[in-house]
């Protein structure tokens, strides 16, 4: 499959402060790639490098097959960009502002702006500076999506949007993907990314800690298990459960008559299921994996171990 975006040993220094210390990643064309990381991790800097708004100190960036520095306006017409902090001032209506951006992007299909505005519930006839944060964000999304670019670079796209509009946004991302567009988006929380992304990169302190499919993250994540069983002594049940690979923190919650245990499971669930077959269960709860917790754990890993 073709590569839409790639970075190799991308380094960015502002004066003496190094913000990116050699970032590597590849985004396959037609996929949704999410970058998550705490504030200040370098997400915005990375995205700005893709748009030639800032220039890398070292390393190589390729966007749709070209160096953004050399690609010029022709390359940027094929990209839709939503900045992380969107400032729209001036006494112009949303419609006029979009007409301006339309004049400097790729061709916009007729009726596309109204269609997007309707979907997001945006009033195009209001002056931009009177718009709320969420409505400005909608305007930003419309200008990024309207020319159906080959690549969308969206920095914290759902910031300020209410849950219903977030759902609509996720639908827009899925449709774009079906159309073959590539989406590169960032967030500081995983839950926003996991709904739409195929692949997630975790960025911390200017380094990619891990690049993983959402499936992979799920497998690596921790689940809580709680079970109640009959006809077995509490300590036997504990021993049985503790013997399964990936199970830890086994606790006895109840031991008179029925035995209730809780534990956490990391990794594959198959061995656990096999063991459970030998028990007389009366209750079983296996939680949805907590990806957020998995990611937070990765954030917390000291830098030396991360590489």
């Amino acid at each position: 499959m073709a590569t839409a975006v790639s970075a190799r040993s991308l380094v960015k220094r502002f004066g003496r402060r190094e913000v990116l210390h050699g970032v590597d990643f590849e985004v396959e064309a037609g996929t949704v790639f999410g970058v998550i990381g705490p504030n200040g991790a370098g997400k915005t800097t990375t995205m700005r490098c893709l748009l030639d708004i800032i220039r890398p100190t070292a390393g190589e960036v390729r966007v749709l097959g070209t160096d953004p520095r050399a690609g010029g306006p022709e390359l940027r017409r094929r990209i839709g960009y939503l900045p992380g902090e969107l400032f729209l001032e001036g006494r112009v209506t949303g419609r006029k502002l979009l007409a301006h951006y339309q004049a400097i992007s790729g061709p916009v299909p007729r009726g596309r702006i109204n269609e997007l505005a309707d979907r997001l519930g945006l009033d195009l006839d209001r002056h931009t500076r009177k718009l709320s944060k969420g409505n400005k964000q909608k305007l930003g999304l419309v200008q990024a999506f309207m020319h159906e670019p080959e690549l969308l670079v969206l920095d914290e796209p759902t910031g300020g949007l209410d849950p219903l509009v977030q759902q609509e946004f996720h639908a827009m991302v899925r449709e774009a993907k079906h159309r073959g567009q590539t989406i590169f988006l960032s967030s500081h929380v995983l839950s926003e990314v996991q709904q739409t992304a195929d692949t997630v990169a975790i960025l911390r302190d200017g380094r990619i800690i891990t690049v993983e499919s959402v499936e992979g993250l799920r497998e690596g994540a921790v689940r809580r298990v709680r079970l109640t069983t009959h006809g077995i002594a509490a300590h036997d049940a504990v021993a049985l459960l503790s013997g399964i690979p990936g199970v830890g923190q086994v606790q006895v919650l109840e031991a008179d008559g029925a035995v209730t245990l809780s534990a956490v499971l990391e990794g594959a669930i198959q061995p656990l299921i096999r063991m459970l077959g030998s028990l007389e269960l009366t209750d079983l709860v296996l939680d949805e994996p907590d990806l957020e917790e998995a990611v937070l754990k990765m954030y917390a890993v000291p830098r030396e171990d991360a590489r």
Binding site: L51, P73, R76, R77, Y81, P83, E85, F87, E89
Partner: peptide, 14 residues
């Protein structure tokens, strides 16, 4: 300074 130039430059302009 107002943050708007960034978005303009991300479009098809030199």
């Amino acid at each position: 300074e107002s943050g708007q130039l960034e978005l303009t430059l991300a479009h098809g302009v030199r």
